[in-house]
Design a protein around this nucleic acid. Structure first.
Lengths: 340, 340
DNA sequence: ATTTGATGTGAGATCGATCTCACATTCGTG
DNA sequence: CACGAATGTGAGATCGATCTCACATCAAAT
């Protein structure tokens, strides 16, 4: 026997008033007699009345949900961001609908479509592709608030929260060059991904500034998972003249590189120096500890959420483009190299 | 100029038919003339009509959302589960509303209340407390489908997906005893948490079976974060007669213990042996690699989601209580000890 | 020719909460 | 005492989609 949840009509009936009066009493607006208000409150209490948000939303057009589409919840970087967004949302009476695109554009598009049909109030998205963004354009065109995180999309006029990828990568590679390395490997993600491109660009600029000719044999591409990174690293270091140093563009790939190098019997920093983009819990567990470019992960989610809720509360103004600085954290995975 | 999304009324008007006919054409039920259907389709296309799910849900009482409340998205264990649930939900046309209780009962209760008001169809919850579960009881009483993961709640008649915590812990501690350890430390989570209690129980039974008297100085409690675990480990190993082996009840605590032991200059497995519950990416990165009790993480989320959707599609029958086996994965963090 | 049935369509009710408007009261003040 | 204002309350419309009915129309069948 399924007992339907109590409706306003039930409350009104129990309190012997009209629905209108009951609504006034419960939402305290308009004129309501003291005694009446009490009666209604009591009735609501007794029936365990909880407003049906679906109905409320149908009228108001506002369902207290925000959507978040990221690449992969299992990447600690995104997990942290999702967590922070959820906290802010909760503080503001909203809940979080989370989806992962798995770095697949088609999935991102269909996920977004499915979320849009839910009358979600606004979105925070880490777009898979910067170029193919018609689906995001249409959000903006229809004035659905959108905040991009970690990555931007071309020609999209909306708020975004990024980090200085190019600068961070450049700092890392310049540091490797300064310690004497010239054959510097790059383990990077799919080129469609914005951060991957920016970080590669920083890598290239550092090489150019150091007078080192780019060499595509030094670059390996893999998906951003530990497993794929292992393979890509093995490919890179199976060459006749492998790199003497390696820069990896995210923490999962750094971990993959660590595993691969260990399995190949290549010692860090003895045989190869390593710097990873994005700090991770276990960077200080390994021996030696891993030098990384750290980004202010704890700021990204909070900032993005705040921007989104600003828009939701009607704040206008030009798109905010926020970019956080990155920082090179020197630990023990880089060792000087005498130019050979 | 915000263009409101097109409604069925708009479509009907453009096609010169009634709303009822338009609905029939779009949802293909009842009798509709071929020509009429085409007109409606065309009109819908032209207006970019997308049904308003809020309105649909208000009538049908079913909003395609499932809710998931876990302890902490940042714990890779839960991240994996959340990901798997999301995948299954997406396949079945649903989206996932994710909330984290942060292991706080009050927050779990208010989060659940807020999710319930959204007309969410069903829930997957990892309850913070087994005893205080009136909020979950009321879900079950009102026939809202509920699946518990990782932990159960007392006297709650609903599906659940767990692992054999006691057996896993017992295997680990028996293994430590078999290698000669007698002062075996336990680093455990808050006792209110179900898994923590079960794992401690396995620890105690193994000790008892090995003829070792329980010693509360060997037990340290901390929250399940790397940072808290560091402190708790330091407390444990600052005693005059510290443990010679340590069993940690989850992967974040294992990582904390690793960090703490390193910072204290205690070498694994030379000075102290270590086994952790729950395998983690970096268990094989450290030197030595960490021996762990692994659980079939990839099964838990998928199984829970499947159970939930079975219920949502009306499947009856008694509550399914699923418990997966755990497995001791021997690596290099345990070393024989001559009884002292 | 008329009944039966299949086919096609529209008017209106419904889901639950909220808001506008109209209608009662009661009160204060000239 | 009377009239406008302040105070309370209810009937009904609204949000958008869907479903039930009732009503047509046209075909085949008796």
């Amino acid at each position: 026997m399924v007992r339907k949840p109590a409706t306003l009509k039930d409350v009104a009936a129990l309190a012997n008033v009209s629905r209108a009066t009951a609504a006034r009493a419960l939402n305290s607006y308009g004129y309501v007699g003291d005694e009446t208000a009490q009666k209604v409150q009591a009735a609501a209490e007794r029936l365990g009345y909880r407003g049906n948000r679906l109905a409320q939303a149908l009228r108001s057009g506002q369902f207290p949900l925000i959507g978040c589409i990221i690449g992969d919840i299992q990447n600690p970087f995104f997990a942290r961001i999702a967590h922070d967004i959820e906290v802010v949302a909760r503080e503001l009476g909203h809940n979080l609908v989370l989806g992962s695109s798995e770095e697949d554009l088609g999935q991102e598009i269909s996920l977004l479509a499915s979320l849009r049909s839910l009358s979600i109030r606004g979105f925070i998205v880490a777009p898979t592709s910067s170029a193919d963004n018609a689906h995001l354009q249409s959000l903006v065109a229809e004035h659905v608030p959108l905040v991009l995180i970690d990555r931007v999309a071309e020609g999209l006029d909306c708020d975004s929260v990024l980090v200085d990828n190019e600068g961070g990568a450049r700092k890392a590679v310049e540091y490797l060059i300064a310690t004497g390395h010239r054959r510097i490997g790059l383990l990077q993600d799919d080129m469609r991904i914005f951060t991957s491109r920016e970080r590669m660009s920083g890598y290239q600029k550092a090489l150019a500034a150091g007078g080192i000719a780019p060499d595509e044999r030094m670059v390996s591409v893999s998906q951003s998972t530990v497993e794929h990174a292992v393979d890509a690293t093995i490919r890179l270091f199976s060459q006749k003249r492998p790199p003497t140093a390696l820069f990896t563009v995210d923490s999962l790939m750094t971990q993959g590189a660590l595993l691969a190098l260990r399995s190949m019997g290549i010692s860090i920093p003895h045989n190869v120096s390593l710097i990873g983009f994005d700090d991770f819990n276990l960077a200080t567990f390994t021996d030696p500890q891993i030098t990384v470019v750290s980004q202010p992960v704890s700021e990204i989610g909070r900032t993005a959420a705040r921007l989104l809720f600003d828009r939701l509360s009607g704040k206008g103004g030009p798109a905010q483009k926020i970019r956080f600085e990155t920082k090179l954290i020197v630990r023990g995975s880089v060792r000087g190299q005498n130019p050979s």
